[in-house]
Amino acid sequence: MQKKESYLQMDKNNQHINFSSNGSNNDFELPKNYFDEMQLEIKAKIIEEKLKALVTNSNDFKVPQGYFKQLQSHIPLKKKTPIVSLISSRVIKYAAAVAIILTLGIIGYQTYSTTSTADEFLLADNFATTSVEDYFNDLTEDQTTIELIEYSEETNAPVTKEQNTTVKEVEDIIDDPITIDPTDLLEIEEEDFDIL
């Protein structure tokens, strides 16, 4: 092939032949790599013929009797049932939007109502005097004693046990303004720095 091309090139150079180097002096087109593939195909065919003379290509594999008749029944095919949606996707979208709005609304309402209750509770005016009085009166002697002992241990404060706390005394405690000594605050800050 290469030799042929070189001859053609030589002839072309000598202006003996007036056609292109690939030998096509017409308008016909050939598939790409046609000659290379043709060579391979012919060579393969020659070897194949030799092989077939040696070993036939007849089929020596066998299948059990009636195999192909029964094959189809051995393949488990499931009937395809079309899935029909009962609710359209549009309805689902609206329902989802409503659900989200409702959820947000409930959460918002709960948050607001909880805050309101807490605020209301913190207002000193709303303290029912009877509630505080009831609390102290409901305490059993043992509970009061234990709590007082614990308190005295923590604060080193003297403990006096008075069982009959009057409403007036309770009101005095609540109304008593808390006074903080600035030096105490300084001490607390210094302690905090020590920890840090």
Partner: peptide
Amino acid sequence: HYTGEEIKIKL
């Protein structure tokens, strides 16, 4: 399931 001769096995 197979009836091939020696040469077929070789193939």
